[in-house]
Structures are given as structure tokens and as C-alpha cells.
């Protein structure tokens, strides 16, 4: 085994980055080996964008003062990243059931690297969902300029990290697949309706205003819309905050959620 020992890299940074890549690669490998997950990732946009979005477009889009189709497409893209990443995190419960979490936790790497890799891996399925959403949008005649699409794609890891970190707070405490699935619905559904993904929230007030300000997806959506609507007349009416503020809030919320979620996860596994 000496030859293997000789190849061992000692840089801490290398090992942590390698861990993130390795865990992420495992998630992607498993994704492609599960035809059901692939089909669901691509079918979900059909339901979200095609059915919910199409219905809203036909019945509620009049007199808004902006192009609802484009507004909704952006909302659905971010929602898809959030929703699929969040749901993907429930696989941690599967890993717990097959004792694979123990194999990961006994390795000499940071728990944050393990969780970050897991989130980014789940984010890959989310990006597939995003692609599906774009295809459905194209069929519905809603498109975005390629440059702006690339910018959204560049922001997608941040969205996935934000959604996955939020999911970790709950997943870190749950050990039942059934409860995990319900909890994920509990996280994703309110965000879809209250953070402005498909319904504008500029005029929200009272408890709903407090709720949408507490949701990380509100800031993710606002950041993406600030990119999409930059320089357009709709910018003032559709974008709520300065992009720098959005970015800062997302970063802070992600780090806080990641720290709390990882702590819960490691603690729950250690006190099983």
C-alpha cells in the first residue's frame, strides 16, 4: 500500500475541494443511474411551467403592465433550482438508512465539505429541471436572450446552495423518509407562492410581507430578475432590492443555514 500512501495529497484545501467534487460526482452518478429521477426532473417543469404557468398566463396575466410570460419563466427557473435541490437533499435520509452517512462521517474531512458536495450534486438535477423549464417555455413561446440565460446559469450554484442549505436545517433533524418528503413540501410550496416566483409580491403587506422577506428564495428571485430586467423599463416595478443587497442577504442566509444544518446533521448522526 506504500505506493498509494505516496500519492496522498496533504494540502487541506485540496482535500476539502476534492471532497466537495467527489460527493457531488456521486450524486450526479446516482442521478444518471436512476431513470425515475431523470424523468421526474424533466417532467416537473411540464407540470410547473406548462400547467400552472400556462393556466396563470391564460387567466390572470392581463393588465399587469409587464410581460407575464417572461416574469413567470424567470420565477419558474429559480423555483425549479430551489425545489429540486431541496427535494434532492432528502437523499441524506436514504444515506442514513443504508448507513452510508457513517462511511462519510468517519472520513477525515470537514462536514461542511460533505454537505456542500451533497447540495451541489442535488443542484445538478435542479439544473436539469431548469433546462426542462426552458424547453417548456420555448414550446409556450416564452424565451430569454442567451446572454441572460448564461448569467442565470452562472448564478445557479448560488441558488442551489441557498435552497440546499435551507433544506439542511430540517433534513439534519429528520431520520424518516416519509417525514423528509413532507418537510420538503413544507419548505418549497410556501416559497413558490410567497417569494414572487409566479405571483408579484410588490404589494404584499402584514404577515405575508414578513414571510416573504424571511424566505431566501425572495432574494434569489430578485437577484435573477435584476439581471434579466437590467436596463429595461420594468426594472423599477419588478425588482425590489439592489442586487448587492440581494447577494449579501443570500450569502449570509446560506452560510447561517449551512452552519446550522450541518451542525444538526452531524449531531443527529453522532447521537443516533
Amino acid at each position: 500500500m506504500n505506493e498509494i500512501t505516496l500519492t496522498r495529497k496533504n494540502s487541506r484545501l485540496f482535500r476539502e475541494l476534492n471532497t466537495v467534487v467527489t460527493v457531488m460526482a456521486r450524486e450526479i452518478t446516482v442521478f444518471f443511474k436512476s431513470p425515475g429521477t431523470v424523468i421526474m426532473s424533466l417532467a416537473m417543469p411540464l407540470m410547473m411551467m406548462g400547467m400552472i404557468g400556462g393556466n396563470l398566463m391564460q387567466n390572470m396575466a392581463g393588465g399587469l403592465g409587464f410581460e407575464f410570460g417572461e416574469f413567470m419563466l424567470v420565477g419558474m427557473l429559480v423555483n425549479m433550482l430551489f425545489m429540486i435541490t431541496t427535494m434532492g437533499m432528502s437523499s441524506l435520509v436514504d444515506d442514513h438508512d443504508i448507513d452510508f452517512n457513517q462511511e462519510m462521517l468517519v472520513s477525515p474531512v470537514s462536514r461542511y465539505s460533505l454537505v456542500t458536495g451533497k447540495i451541489l450534486g442535488a443542484g445538478f438535477a435542479a439544473v436539469m429541471g431548469m433546462v426542462g423549464t426552458l424547453i417548456v417555455g420555448l414550446v409556450m413561446g416564452i424565451t430569454l436572450p442567451v446572454g441572460k440565460l448564461l448569467l442565470i446559469l452562472a448564478l445557479s450554484p448560488l441558488m442551489c446552495l441557498s435552497g440546499g442549505a435551507l433544506a439542511m436545517i430540517i433534513i439534519g433533524l429528520i431520520k424518516s423518509k416519509r417525514t423528509a418528503n413532507l418537510a420538503m413540501m413544507f419548505i418549497t410550496m410556501p416559497q413558490m407562492f410567497l417569494s414572487g416566483a409566479i405571483i408579484p409580491i410588490n404589494n404584499s403587506s402584514g404577515a405575508l410581507l414578513v414571510l416573504n422577506r424571511l424566505m431566501p428564495m425572495t432574494y434569489c428571485l430578485d437577484l435573477v430578475r435584476s439581471v434579466v430586467y437590467a436596463g429595461s423599463p420594468e426594472y423599477e416595478s419588478l425588482v425590489m432590492f439592489n442586487p448587492v443587497v440581494n447577494f449579501a442577504v443570500i450569502a449570509v442566509l446560506t452560510i447561517v443555514c449551512l452552519m446550522i444544518g450541518t451542525y444538526f446533521f452531524a449531531r443527529t448522526e453522532k447521537n443516533r
Binding site: 500519492t7 485540496f14 471532497t19
Partner: peptide, 25 residues
């Protein structure tokens, strides 16, 4: 058993070796 049933035998070993920093993935 703490193996990932969806991966191959070799993929499970590779995952472990990379987590222990022996090789880049």
C-alpha cells in the same frame, strides 16, 4: 453494510479513496 447500492464496487472504492485525499476525483 455501508456501501452505496447504486454505485459499482469500484465506484465505492474510488469514492472512499478520494474522500481520504489519496487521489483527485
Amino acid at each position: 453494510p455501508s456501501l452505496d447500492p447504486q454505485l459499482t464496487a469500484e465506484e465505492n472504492i474510488r469514492f472512499h479513496a478520494c474522500l481520504y485525499g489519496m487521489y483527485g476525483y
